[in-house]
């Protein structure tokens, strides 16, 4: 130990550490028991989960909550992740409002969530409550709530992906908002997501949709390079999905398939349907029929694909 002969080789080896660091990936595995939707819901039903409460909330979850407040112009509505449902029935997502904003004024829901600051009729605080309603962002919960464009949310999704590059959901939702006004940037965002999450089939699926949209020029012409790119994305998405989806997945018993959720199943079916539609529009009818039949068999039957295959077969 007295000599210093060992120090230089040690430091030299350290300089080459990056060559080794990339090979150490013990937590890079596909099926994650703890992230399964069923497991989350079953855990959340328990008293232990209720006691621990918000302690389990991750930074990304907090940012999702933040995005919801932003989306409602700062008006704090009760979270759409219904806390009663969460504690009593363990439902993580109480409705289909899973980041895709698909409700509007016409689709007004009578069980629409109330605001965090209550209405005058329900507020025992009197003048203090009135003051809060006037000073802080507030809107009458009996009126349809107004959404911002979603563009303001984008920095949050960017923050989420920066703090956790494996947050596939943040890439999905961020790109979904971005694809309307800036499809090129949305595609770039998704490409970054794909680089960080090469196994997540949802990202090339969405990237394929955006590339397909970009392939259609304003004057009706088709961009062949974009078309080829979309094709690559759809091929990648279907290949990844078919590799990841557990064999014989049963939608009635998702609890038997940890690592795969109904959300993934929806995206998986969406990915193959888009691939077939794309084949129909840009490839050959026979290939589209072949794909529809093959993918339907893969899922053990899919009504949409079966109907599409029949319709294509009956076309002249």
């Amino acid at each position: 130990m007295n000599g210093a002969y060992w120090r230089i080789p040690s430091l030299a080896a350290f300089l080459l550490l990056p060559l080794l660091a990339g090979r150490v990936r013990p937590n890079d595995y596909e099926a994650s028991r703890r992230d399964s939707q069923t497991a989350i819901e079953r855990r959340n039903r328990t008293a232990i989960a209720a006691i621990l409460g918000g302690v389990r909330t991750s930074m990304a979850d907090m940012m999702f909550v933040k995005t919801e407040v932003y989306m409602h112009n700062g008006v704090a509505y009760m979270p759409h992740l219904n806390m009663d449902a969460l504690s009593q029935r363990g439902e993580v997502v109480a409705d289909d409002h899973d980041g895709h904003d698909d409700h509007d004024e016409e689709a007004y829901d009578p069980e629409f969530p109330p605001t965090v600051i209550p209405t005058a009729g329900k507020d025992f605080r009197g003048i203090v409550g009135e003051l809060e309603r006037r000073v802080r962002p507030w809107d009458d919960p009996d009126r349809p709530h107004i959404h911002t464009s979603g563009i303001e949310l984008l920095p949050w999704y960017r923050m989420m992906t920066i703090s956790d590059p494996t947050n596939v959901r943040a890439y999905q939702i961020g790109a979904w908002w971005l694809k309307g006004p800036k499809p090129e940037e949305a595609l770039g965002f998704l490409k970054e997501g794909i680089a960080n999450n090469p196994r997540a089939f949802q990202l090339p699926y969405l990237a394929g949709q955006i590339a397909a949209k970009l392939a259609k020029g304003e004057n009706g012409e088709t961009d062949s390079a974009r078309t080829a790119e979309a094709w690559e994305f759809f091929d990648a998405a279907t290949a990844l999905m078919m590799k990841e989806r557990p064999e014989g997945y049963d939608r009635d018993h998702p609890e038997n398939f940890p690592g795969w959720s109904e959300y993934k199943e929806e995206d998986a079916r969406g990915a193959v349907r888009f691939a077939v539609y794309f084949e129909r529009d840009h490839g050959s009818r026979d290939a589209a029929i072949e794909k529809a039949v093959r993918y339907s068999e893969f899922f053990g039957g899919d009504g949409v694909l079966d109907r599409l295959a029949r319709r294509l077969e009956n076309e002249d």
Binding site: W6, R7, S10, L11, A13, F14, L17, L20, A21, V24
Partner: peptide, 16 residues
Amino acid sequence: VMTLYVTICLAACFAA
């Protein structure tokens, strides 16, 4: 490989 990764980091820490 993981052990080697830690060993190199350890050796560098000790050297420094």
